[in-house]
């Protein structure tokens, strides 16, 4: 019962903040709603016994990525906001229709095609940080190292791109 209540409240918050992110007029407000959304997703992870991921979500998304967005929104001090003047060739309404079509399609796939995958249910302890760590550093060691190289490359690339004189 409590689980269901938590899920419905969090789901409503996640979707509500998602709508606000997409519709907010000011980009700064949009960024803020994004933070709120990510915090709600982190709370959802806690209800799913994924505390480590919840904390990482807050630390990396809310504490790192979104701060970056906020910086860029503030640096890009717009004299003419992009949504003010309309491009006649732009088919925004068609975009919305297409997005709804994507949603219907996904929901249809979900309704028809989804069944619980076969496989033995493992044991996910209430405190599974060590298990996540073990998975990352043994079975998924090579993807993990690749991901760290990707981060390094992205970091160098971002510094190069953002530098003033090329």
């Amino acid at each position: 019962m409590a689980e269901a209540a938590a899920f419905y409240i969090l789901a409503a918050l996640i979707l509500g903040f998602g709508v606000l992110v997409v519709t907010a007029k000011s980009a700064v407000h949009s960024v803020l709603f994004l933070v709120a959304d990510f915090l709600c997703v982190a709370a959802l992870y806690v209800t799913l016994q994924a505390e480590f991921l919840a904390v990482i979500q807050v630390m990396v998304y809310a504490g790192g990525i979104v701060v970056l967005y906020l910086f860029v929104v503030m640096l890009v001090n717009l004299k003419r906001p992009p949504d003010a003047q309309r491009d006649p060739r732009r088919l925004g309404r068609l975009g919305a229709v297409l997005a709804v079509a994507v949603m219907v399609e996904l929901a249809a796939i979900l309704a028809v095609g989804w069944s619980r995958p076969e496989g033995e249910a493992g044991a996910l302890g209430p405190s599974n940080v060590a298990q996540v760590g073990r998975a990352l550093y043994t079975d998924y060691l090579i993807p993990f190292e690749l991901a760290s190289i990707l981060l390094l490359v992205a970091m160098i690339g971002a510094i190069l791109l953002a530098r003033r004189e090329m």
């Binding site: 996640i14 979707l15 998602g18 709508v19 992110v21 997409v22 980009a27 949009s30 967005y69 860029v72 929104v73 890009v76 906001p81 992009p82 949504d83 491009d87 732009r90 925004g92 975009g95 919305a96 297409l98 997005a99 709804v100 994507v102 949603m103 996904l106 929901a107 979900l110």
Partner: peptide, 20 residues
């Protein structure tokens, strides 16, 4: 997840500000 994903799609297809 479908709902949130579709919201993202709507944002990508309808907004003009590339940051958003």
């Amino acid at each position: 997840s479908v709902g949130l994903f579709s919201l993202g799609v709507i944002g990508v297809l309808t907004r003009r500000n590339i940051i958003i």
